[in-house]
């Protein structure tokens, strides 16, 4: 479309740029600030965005090393950040795998089979999605308290309980995988069935290998979902060495014990990998969905 760039138009473009730059500054400000704070000495020091003296004390503490300050005082890490990160990864990886396998098999039945109550089950899953777990926290606590009195392995303050609590959240993933399965022509599996494969074999050997991209995406989404989950983890986990990052991080910012600098380093250390994984997953997610949508 031919466009004549008159003077007002150029002004508009300039204004838009100014607005966007201002907005980017506001949005990016917390990230730059937190980077600067993590490199400043001390937990209270205030100063410019570019710190005058660079100190690695917070980073050393976040990585679990003790730090000897210029005044000769040795500081040891207040909180086991790396252990929390490891706890988070452990819980998220296991619950991601469990969620993935539960939702993949269910999605296969929904996409390929006929059975009674299919429509009701699908909309039931959708409906479940509307009610967040945070509304049932008391019940979840009571349930795991009871389970724990019989099986301490799955009781309160265990990572196994957290995995169990997370593995019910399959509804969205079932829908995602089902949508992808439906884009894969049924004829390929049918050919395998003609050659004598059972439905399970057709699923396992034919359909699954073709669905690897969406399975990766769903795993990553479930993984991130478990890592950033706060409410359920905050009531199930109490001991400091059992906490996940989402629950532990807030311990840095108690009014009585305000470890701003240490928090900054820990936040970058744990937030950066999660952010990168999320951006990657988001990209694949979009790619996976458009690939799914191509068939209509």
């Amino acid at each position: 479309m031919p466009m004549v760039l008159d003077k007002t138009h150029r002004w508009h473009v300039l204004l838009a740029h100014l607005f966007l730059i201002a907005l980017v500054c506001v949005v990016i400000f917390p990230f730059l600030m937190i980077l600067s704070i993590s490199l400043r000495p001390g937990n209270f020091a205030a100063g410019s965005i570019i710190p005058e003296t660079i100190s690695l004390e917070h980073w050393k503490l976040a990585l679990g090393m003790s730090y000897t300050g210029p005044d000769g005082r040795t500081m040891s890490p207040e909180f086991p950040v790396l252990l929390w990160l490891w706890n988070s990864i452990k819980v998220a990886a296991v619950s991601g795998l469990v969620t993935l396998s539960l939702s993949t098999t269910a999605a296969y039945a929904f996409a390929r089979m006929r059975f009674r109550g299919k429509k009701a089950a699908l909309s039931g899953l959708m409906l479940m999605q509307m009610f967040p777990a945070v509304l049932a926290l008391m019940a979840i606590y009571a349930i795991f308290d009871r389970i724990g009195s019989v099986f301490p392995f799955f009781g309160l303050d265990t990572h196994a309980s957290l995995v169990l609590a997370y593995c019910g959240g399959i509804s969205l993933h079932v829908w995602t995988i089902k949508g992808y399965f439906e884009t894969i022509p049924f004829e390929i599996e049918e050919a395998a069935r003609v050659d004598g494969a059972t439905p399970w074999q057709a699923f396992r050997m034919v359909l699954l290998p073709m669905a690897v991209p969406i399975l990766m995406v769903v795993f990553l989404l479930a993984f991130i979902g478990a890592i950033i989950e706060y409410p359920v983890a905050s009531i199930l986990l109490k001991q400091q060495d059992k906490l996940t990052l989402a629950v532990g991080s807030k311990l840095f910012l108690y009014e009585q014990k305000y470890l701003w600098g240490d928090f900054a380093a820990a936040a970058i250390l744990s937030g950066l990998p999660i952010t990168v994984v999320f951006i990657l997953a988001q990209k694949w997610m979009v790619a996976g969905l458009t690939a799914g949508g191509s068939k209509g």
Binding site: L102, R114, A136, Y166, G168, P199
Partner: peptide
Amino acid sequence: YAYRYLFPGIAAALIFVVFPMLYT
């Protein structure tokens, strides 16, 4: 047969999502 594929997922959702709500 179809329920074999559904059972684990649906059971997990019922036990850990629906049941806590009813229990609440």
